[in-house]
Write a protein that binds this DNA or RNA. Structure first.
Lengths: 223, 223
DNA sequence: ATATATTATTACAAAACTGTAATGGAATAT
DNA sequence: ATATTCCATTACAGTTTTGTAATAATATAT
């Protein structure tokens, strides 16, 4: 999990980096809008922590850029409990905001909460998508409350989709993730076969997949 | 994840229940030491939230009872930022404390943090034990940075240990968890065989297991 | 409309997994 | 010391998984 932090106050920025890294996140820090724009346009992060008031502009701008890239979680750091800021923040698509001075613990809680909202994972490590429940703590999958037995490969394929929900996954990417190959050690068709096998077990009607959909010429996408 | 809450103020108690259940925990509420003692002696919970000052005694007592049952996480709710309380709390084995009035978000953060400490799970869903890293988001296991290929059954067995770290798991319990049987549908020896297979893959020296240890006459225990 | 590229389906051997049985070893009890 | 109980090890057959090949179906391009 990598977090992008935009914060001009060096003390706060470093403090945040420290706390976040301590929690197991990796952190990229930017100190100005200019710098942030450059970084954000080149990379994607799991979550964006954006200060609102910076010397060379507002965090709003970065939020807009980020949200244009897709469904990505954003939290604003606001200087005051300013209602107007809050409303505008949510209108711009921020998922949460926190006003300074904040307690680090609280920020961490909000980060977790927002991330969980994005992955549909609840406190038990269960991920629910429609009628499907994936319990990663027990490696058990149910569909309509019926347990589905997945093979090791099928399960890993499913997890890859869950970890990239809403994103199109190319065949290449999937092959890399599941078979750890960068080339074509495994037949390209192997993946197609596994997709079918997974669909047969997980989809209500495998002929009209609702969960794992194919994006012709691109790859596959979960829901 | 089930949380035991001891709190005599009904408003706070109900509020906590609501917030915790909203986060996906299941909650058991007690309003007095007497009630708490009865419940706690009969059940085990994933975490204990104990108010310190109650009409019929102190949450300390419950903490002692709980800690006598094993390595279980406890958080105190204290009325004031009272240093003496804090020190005594930690001496009694509390893992954290939070003073009222607290923000729910902060409490949730501390709960997550404490639970994570107990399960060794970090922000990425990775669980680290010595040289072993289990990534439940990808169903990948490494030992000394080398990927280990586990079968579906072996992986589930390992997860069962991880979810019950520090507790002795009886053969019966393990059979129930992994083979979903309450009797002896599968040979009792099957488990023994799987323990060996898992050890062979995961232990540095399978002849002297450091991770999965046998407790003669009882079962097995992780570390 | 036809060709081409992309994905889906089916079938099939080789390999791996799964559960059991038989045997061996180690700890505890008698 | 010996018996007994509990756990470890090994070997093995039946089953499942795994990856591939061959073929069919579908969408896009010419």
């Amino acid at each position: 999990m990598n977090i992008f932090v935009l914060e001009d106050d060096i003390a706060i920025g470093m403090g945040l980096s420290y706390s976040l890294e301590n929690e197991g996140y990796s952190v990229t820090l930017a100190k100005s809008i200019k710098e942030a724009k450059e970084i954000v346009s080149k990379n994607k992060y799991s979550l964006y922590l954006l200060d609102l008031t910076l010397p060379d502009g507002s965090g709003y701008e970065i939020c807009k850029t980020v949200k244009a890239q897709g469904e990505l979680p954003v939290i604003f750091l606001t200087a005051f409990d300013n209602e107007i800021n809050v409303v505008t923040g949510f209108e711009l698509g921020a998922d949460d905001y926190i006003s300074k001075p904040f307690r680090v613990r609280e920020l961490l809680a909000r980060i977790k909460s927002v991330l969980r909202r994005y992955t549909n994972e609840n406190a038990d490590g269960k991920i629910v998508i429609d009628d499907m429940v994936v319990n990663t703590n027990e490696a058990k999958v149910t569909v309509k409350d019926e347990e589905i037995i997945l093979t090791a490969m099928e399960y890993r394929l499913l997890l890859t989709f869950l970890n990239n929900r809403g994103k199109v996954l190319t065949r290449q990417k999937l092959l890399e993730e599941i078979w750890d190959v960068d080339g074509d050690f495994v037949n390209d068709n192997t993946l197609t076969v596994y997709i079918k096998r997974l669909r047969d077990k997980v989809e209500e009607d495998p002929n009209e997949p609702k969960l794992i959909q194919t994006v012709r010429g691109m790859g596959y996408i979960l829901k």
